[in-house]
Design a protein around this nucleic acid. Sequence first.
DNA 1: AGCACGATGCTCT
DNA 2: GAGCATCGTGCTT
Length: 202
Amino acid sequence: MKFGNPLPLEFYDRPTLIVARELLGTRLTRILDGEQLAGIIIETEAYIGEEDMGCHAKAGKTKRNGVMYGLPGHAYVYFTYGMHWMLNAVTEREGFPAAVLIRAIDPVVGVDIISTRRQGRDTAGPAKLSRALGIDKSLNGVDLCDTGAGLWIEPGAEVGEDDIISGPRVGLDTVAEPWKSIPWRFRVSPPAIFPYEERCRK
DNA sequence: AGCACGATGCTCT
DNA sequence: GAGCATCGTGCTT
């Protein structure tokens, strides 16, 4: 029983800014309670190394951020604000802490289930998509290049450079420059016309 | 349409 | 004990 077509480790074993851009348009897929759910990734952010003062690895390796120091293509899932789970894809060589935060998806498979899990609301936001797909601590450290854990990313739509908007990362208000303002957030343009978001507005 | 704020608990100092 | 890679509500324009 083989299914799915996960992006390989080599995809993630590259400069994080490249991976963050190329993840736009790919399909984040989850098997939850035997049902397949999936959404097109439409927004990402890059977090790159111990020098990046916005990155969790800024103070070195800890129990929490350890997965970022491991193999590329693995999921770094962490908990924040007392209630939210964030999904990242680890990038670059083993030993170098970097990852891409998946910030938004537009659901394309299992849309009704996702809508119910979100109580009819949208999935644009890192904690929102985790809630929509049932992503939590149990998925921290799993291999995204294998379908075994029920979470992977596969090729999807092509997104050209001209269709990518970049800007500062979100929520780094207390972080020092230049890290606070460096444009390492990437979003598919135009940002308003995704089918699921349309549906949520009704 | 936009802003302010409270929720809520884990991680690291 | 402080700070958080956020979200939803409720109140103001």
